[in-house]
C-alpha cells in the first residue's frame, strides 16, 4: 500500500512526465472504443521494459536511434487503420518503460535494490507502482471516454491531425535530443 502511495505522489513529479506525455500522444491516435485497450497495452509495455533491465536484459531502447525506431513504429502502428494497430501502444510503452528514470523513494528503492538480485520479486511491485504513476493518464483517458466537451474536442478533425503531427515529431525529437530537453524543461519548471 505504501508503495502505491509513493507512486501516486511520484505521479505528480517531473520524473513521471515522460510517461504522461507518451500516454497523452497516444490518446488521440485511436477511436474512442479502443482507448482503454491502448492504455492497457501501453501500461503492459511500460511495466515489461521497466523491469527487463533488472533481469539483465537491456534492449538498448534508451539509445536514441533504437528508441526512436521502436517509438516511431509503435506510434505509426497505433495511428494506422489496422485492426491490430492498437498493439503499437505496447511498443510506445516499451520505449516509455526503457527510458523511464523513476523518482526512487524509499519503497521503490527497496524494490529495485532487491530486484537487481532477484528480478522476479520486482515484477508485481513495479506493476503496482507504475499503475500508480499512470493514474493521471487513466483519469485523462476516463475523461475522454465520458460524454464531455473534452471528448468532442478530441473528435475534431483538426485535433486528430494535431495528435498525428505530434506523434510524427516525437521520434524525431528523440533522435535530436529535443525530447530530453522538453522533459528537462518541464522538470525545471516544476522545481521552481
Amino acid at each position: 500500500m505504501s508503495l502505491l502511495v509513493e507512486a501516486l505522489r511520484s505521479a505528480l513529479l517531473p520524473c513521471s512526465y515522460s510517461i504522461l506525455l507518451m500516454a497523452l500522444v497516444l490518446l488521440g491516435l485511436r477511436k474512442r472504443g479502443e482507448r482503454a485497450e491502448v492504455l492497457g497495452l501501453f501500461y503492459l509495455g511500460t511495466v515489461l521494459l521497466a523491469w527487463l533491465p533488472l533481469a539483465g536484459v537491456n534492449l538498448m531502447l534508451d539509445h536514441r536511434l533504437g528508441g526512436a525506431a521502436v517509438l516511431g513504429a509503435g506510434l505509426a502502428l497505433t495511428a494506422s487503420r489496422f485492426r491490430a494497430g492498437a498493439g503499437g501502444a505496447a511498443l510506445v510503452g516499451a520505449f516509455a518503460g526503457a527510458t523511464w528514470l523513476p523518482c526512487v523513494g524509499p519503497q521503490l528503492g527497496s524494490v529495485l535494490t532487491r530486484g537487481l538480485v532477484e528480478p522476479s520479486t520486482a515484477v508485481l511491485p513495479l506493476a503496482l507502482y507504475l499503475a500508480g504513476v499512470m493514474v493521471p493518464s487513466a483519469l485523462i483517458y476516463l475523461l475522454a471516454a465520458k460524454d464531455t466537451g473534452f471528448r468532442s474536442f478530441l473528435a475534431r478533425r483538426r485535433v486528430r491531425i494535431g495528435f498525428q503531427v505530434a506523434a510524427a515529431l516525437l521520434p524525431v525529437a528523440v533522435v535530436t535530443g529535443g525530447y530530453d530537453r522538453l522533459v528537462g524543461e518541464l522538470a525545471r519548471l516544476s522545481n521552481l
Binding site: G33, E34, A36, E37, G40, L41, L44, G45, V47, L48, W51, L52, L54, A55, G56, V57, R83, A84, A86, G87, A90, V117, E118, P119, S120, V123
Partner: peptide
C-alpha cells in the same frame, strides 16, 4: 476491440510469465 484487448493482454501476460521464468534462471 474488447476481444482484441483480451488477446493482447493475454499475450503480454504470457510474455511477462516467460520473462519471469528467464529472470529466475538469470538470478
Amino acid at each position: 476491440s474488447r476481444r482484441r484487448a483480451a488477446v493482447a493482454v493475454a499475450i503480454m501476460l504470457g510474455l511477462l510469465v516467460v520473462a519471469i521464468g528467464v529472470s529466475r534462471l538469470v538470478s
